[in-house]
Amino acid sequence: MHWPIDMIVLTFVIFCAIAAITVRDLLATAILFGAYSFMMCLLWAVMGAVDVAFTEASVGAGVSTVFFVAAVFRTSRRTKD
């Protein structure tokens, strides 16, 4: 029995991307982008691109989420002056 795994996960990825641009909170956007990155890593692995999935796992899922959170944390919604 063959599963259309890539189609199902791609549906989740599109759902996550639409939610990430719809939600009105920067931290929630960063979290949704992290989930998007995790699922894109899974999708690259299912497609057979091992090294791309490796890079996505280490850079996209790990480091960029931390960078986005740090950027949200260091900025404020309104200007100081």
Partner: peptide
């Protein structure tokens, strides 16, 4: 690699 990195976020 994912298991090593997943906790950082």
């Amino acid at each position: 690699t994912l298991a090593l990195v997943a906790f950082l976020g």
